[in-house]
Design a protein around this nucleic acid. Structure first.
Lengths: 118, 118
DNA sequence: ATGATGGGTAGGAGATTTCCTACCTGTCAA
DNA sequence: TTGACAGGTAGGAAATCTCCTACCCATCAT
């Protein structure tokens, strides 16, 4: 197995978070998740945007490893590749106790309040 | 409680993901998580960047709700506010079964391979 | 009061993003 | 073979991001 440098990995992480930083791209992921693999035109129907622009979004998603394409005749069927999202979850993990502490604290506070103040 | 429109919420989500789409800002969050609340100068020591630039990153994080500031004398102590990250986790959740399926498939495949090929 | 310190804002340069129109390639049907 | 269709790339405009220097305002110590 080819070993990847720490630099490569943080560059991957950059590409991943950057890919998610756009509402259109997040919506593409949602469509592929909820409706399964589909060709570009079917995806494009959901957006108020010319096809070449969507093509570029698909390219960003491809380069982040979040989608794959399969050529079927003259169509290219895009499919969700969720694996990189596990890395987002891993990134999130060390923060989890912080927001749970906060929510717990809020819960405790509410518990101590009379109902009509809560 | 003031009700927030769906538009407001998707704008929040945009701000949140956009805030995370920068390595410097993610590193600020990590520092606040691992080293606790601290003033700007202490944070700035970790970056090869002028202070005003870091100030702007802190502003982006503030507007995403990911940090808060407390004025102590002439210092401003920044603190991690992890709550919005719960929203990232919520966003992630519907994707989880997809990457788990994939990993499971990979695991099954490896199980069927001779050790020296795995 | 005055200077030094902490940290923000203003304004601008250069890079990057996101959209567009125009055009190209590959596949299918007549 | 010719046309139509799916979808990519090229190149450019406008917006946004990320950095900078210069400057401003508070606070604290002298």
């Amino acid at each position: 197995m080819a070993t990847r440098s720490a630099q490569d990995e943080s560059q991957d992480q950059d590409r991943l978070f950057a890919a998610l930083a756009n509402a259109t791209r997040r919506e593409v992921l949602r469509l592929l998740r909820d409706q399964g693999p589909q060709p570009v035109q079917t995806l494009a129907d959901h957006f108020d945007m010319r096809r070449p622009s969507l093509s570029e979004h698909l390219k960003v998603l491809r380069e982040a490893g979040l989608v794959s394409e399969e050529r079927r005749g003259r169509q290219r069927v895009y499919r969700l590749e969720a694996a990189p999202l596990a890395e987002v979850q891993d990134w999130l993990h060390p923060y989890e106790r912080f927001w749970r502490e906060r929510l717990k604290g809020l819960g405790d506070l509410l518990d101590r309040m009379p109902d009509d103040e809560a």
